[in-house]
């Protein structure tokens, strides 16, 4: 089942100045399985991609496509009984999948950081903000807690929280949603990680706050030179930050391209449909009554009972016999543009 994509690291990605040897993270044939009562569920099924230092990779897909699970698997944070069943994840010369728990733990929060969707539940309700933000310094830099708290104030100021000396003594419920997410971001970048995983970091926020948080993330990335894997269901949000975008469907990568290329020339029917169906401000012409939007019929098939072919075939307007017979491999559809579809023009 695992499709190890030999060409996965698009090493020649000159647009973002990456070289083959300089890849920060290389994911190869990652497979994550959850045992269920109705058989094993491969939430991530043979996924390969890479991120260069300082680059932002957007990962887009609908709920259950495996985009979050893949990130959790890389960091060793999979909720039991989920487990990595195949593949490797190369980071700084080590395979994170085979690293022992202690060594992986020492990387987490230091070189690799992650932020989550809901900042309120991601913060401990009974620990002051300052202690939580400074905690990574206590863990990884052996900084004394009192000093870490001071450091936390500086970090909060850096992420745009006013009056940080007061804020470090406050608790999460005393902060607004936007400030909480800023605090979570401050916490994640405290040790200046090389790679930040951001899992739907703005989905729980209002649109005006969302714009601020996106700006902040991009600014931090530019300042510190960290790379980012930005996970979202929202194409527009991803297009705001990402250099390159990976589109996932039912546990697999269906398309991967530089951001502008992907939105201008989507090659996979699923990507095309996704771009067409998302309500976008201004798509409906002025003066026209509300008219129906393009839509993708049906819903994602159960991966446990799916046949051998392309997983999107049942919903795909272009599907033919061969689509149901075998799984299309990722192939090059243009410069740095990869697509897993038999019908796509190359």
């Amino acid at each position: 089942m695992t499709s190890l994509d030999p060409a996965a690291p698009t090493a020649e990605d000159e647009a973002v100045g990456a070289t083959g040897a300089g890849m920060l993270l290389e994911v190869q044939g990652l497979e994550v399985t959850f045992p269920t009562t109705r058989g094993p569920l491969k939430a991530v099924d043979g996924v390969s991609y890479s991120i260069a230092a300082g680059q932002t990779l957007g990962v887009v897909g609908e709920s259950g496509c495996g985009k979050s699970v893949a990130a959790l698997a890389i960091l060793g944070l999979l909720p039991p009984p989920g487990a990595v069943t195949a593949g490797q994840v190369l980071f700084a010369g080590a395979d994170l999948v085979r690293l022992d728990r202690g060594a992986l733990r020492r990387l987490r929060g230091d070189r690799l950081a992650m932020i989550f969707q809901d900042p309120l539940s991601a913060l401990n309700p009974v620990v002051p903000i300052g202690d939580q933000v400074g905690e990574t310094l206590v863990i990884h830099r052996q900084v004394a807690p009192s000093l870490a708290r001071k450091e936390a104030a500086a970090l909060l100021r850096r992420v745009g929280i006013s009056d940080p000396d007061r804020r470090i003594t406050e608790y999460p419920h005393q902060l607004s949603g936007g400030m909480r997410q800023r605090a979570v971001i401050a916490m994640a970048v405290a040790c200046r990680p090389a790679l930040l995983f951001a899992d739907e970091p703005t989905t729980a926020l209002d649109v005006t706050v969302q714009a601020q948080i996106l700006d902040l993330l991009d600014e931090l990335r530019a300042d510190t030179g960290m790379a980012m894997q930005f996970i979202s269901h929202n194409l527009a949000v991803v297009s705001r930050l990402a250099d390159e975008v990976v589109v996932m469907y039912a546990g697999r990568i269906v398309e991967r391209a530089p951001t502008n290329e992907l939105f201008r020339h989507p090659a996979h029917p699923y990507t095309q449909a996704l771009i067409d169906t998302v309500p976008v401000k201004g798509r409906r012409p002025l003066g026209s009554p509300p008219t129906k939007l393009a839509s993708i019929p049906g819903q994602v098939a159960d991966m446990r009972t799916a046949g051998p072919g392309c997983r999107f075939a049942a919903r795909c307007p272009q599907a033919a016999y061969d689509c149901r017979a075998a799984e299309p491999p990722l192939r090059e559809a243009g410069k740095n543009h990869w697509v897993a579809c038999f019908r796509a023009a190359t």
Binding site: A113, F116, E135, V184
Partner: peptide, 17 residues
């Protein structure tokens, strides 16, 4: 099972912590 426990683990906190 709460999210903030996952956050603590993501920070690299030891199981004891």
């Amino acid at each position: 099972g709460q999210d903030f426990i996952r956050t603590a683990r993501a920070k690299g906190a030891s199981e004891m912590r």
